[in-house]
């Protein structure tokens, strides 16, 4: 919780907003792409860092968002107007619904915890990838091509976001909106209950909180944000494929978040930007050794720096009302007490 966290956070967003002043169109497009991955990383960091839910299938929601955007703007969903706005809305609502329902199904009653949740979400992503590969209406193995670019505005006053600069600005606004939304939730009473559930679910339930519903709600928000990232991805690349739903992307996002730091949203965001941009620079010179280096770096981060490389510098202080009272640290830890009472 460094003194410089808050100025650094502001400085980072200002620098990002000032990027169009120094970067040319090509690099601006690249930066927009990195920021899309950053939004995706924040969605995982929220559910993993705050909720303690290790989701191995976050790509599921990214992929649903991307497909929703693609199908809507191509006019392939009957009854839904082929507009960017409806596409974006569906791309957030559908994954949020999917995540919320999956969350309720998995957490209600004697819910799944920890590793079981990880394996089940991983399997869910694999199932979704198989389904998409074999569903010819949504393109099957080849996916969908020629997704139209975003259009903003109404009627005759419409602009098409072909150029990198307006698209970059849209992604910037989306990134800041996602960041502020997740940060607001994290710094609210809701976030406090979520962290309480993460640290000791039995105790949170005992205090009267419906922990399953809190976790499902957080999962839904996380799914919606991941869907937004997927929609932006589809609009930028004009292409979606079943790989967006599956295994490989889910692994990548886990690595970005673990290296950046799961408990701080901005650390996860920068983690994605950093790993992806280092990959672009180094994958030429290191070739096949890059993935080996990344794997080893990931192991090192998990074993030695479980809070991530960047999180310690970017952690913001909580609002005064939500801070832990000073004397609370003097009490014995919950683990210690449980240990004494155990038979």
């Amino acid at each position: 919780m460094s003194r410089f966290s808050f100025p650094l956070t502001i400085l980072f967003w200002v620098a990002l907003a000032a990027a169009p002043l120094v970067l040319d169109g090509w690099n601006l497009g690249l930066l927009a792409q990195l920021m899309i991955y950053g939004i995706f990383a924040m969605s995982l960091a929220f559910i993993w860092g705050q909720g303690g839910l290790l989701c191995f299938g976050q790509s599921l929601f990214f992929g649903i968002g991307a497909y929703a955007m693609a199908l809507t703007t191509k006019g392939m969903i009957p009854g839904v107007p082929a507009m960017t706005l409806t596409g974006l809305l569906l791309a957030m609502i559908l994954p949020a619904l999917a995540a919320g329902l999956l969350g309720l199904a998995l957490f209600k009653g004697r819910g799944l915890v920890g590793a079981y949740f990880g394996i089940v979400t991983l399997s869910a992503a694999v199932i979704a990838e198989r389904l998409a590969t074999n569903w010819s209406y949504i393109g099957g193995f080849n996916g969908l091509l020629d997704i139209p670019p975003m259009r903003l505005g109404w009627g005759s006053w419409q602009i098409e976001l072909y150029d990198p600069l307006p698209f970059f600005l849209v992604v910037l606004v989306a990134a800041i909106a996602a960041y502020l939304l997740l940060l607001k939730l994290e710094r609210s009473a809701f976030g406090t209950v979520l962290r309480g559930t993460r640290d000791n679910e039995t105790r949170a339930a005992f205090l009267g909180f419906e922990t399953a519903e809190y976790k499902a709600a957080a999962f839904a928000v996380s799914g919606g944000v991941a869907g937004l990232a997927g929609a932006l991805f589809a609009a930028q690349f004009a292409f979606v494929s079943p790989a967006l739903l599956g295994f490989a992307l889910a692994t990548e996002v886990l690595i970005w978040v673990a290296i950046g730091g799961k408990e701080v949203l901005l650390a996860a965001f920068i983690g994605a930007l950093a790993v992806k941009s280092v990959e672009k620079v180094l994958s030429d010179s290191l070739g096949q050794y890059w993935l080996l280096v990344l794997g080893l770096l990931f192991i090192t981060a998990v074993v030695l720096l479980p809070r991530g490389l960047l999180a310690p510098f970017l952690r913001l202080t909580l609002p005064r009302a939500l801070r832990r009272p000073e004397q609370a640290t003097k009490h014995p830890t919950p683990e210690g007490r449980q240990g004494q009472n155990a038979p």
Binding site: L54, T251, Q288, L291, L292, G295, L296, F298, I299, P306
Partner: peptide, 22 residues
Amino acid sequence: RFLDTILATWGISLALKQLVII
């Protein structure tokens, strides 16, 4: 750290697979 064992072994799996590819 129960959850971290999954992540670490996942990292090991990536590294081993890449080593085999190399």
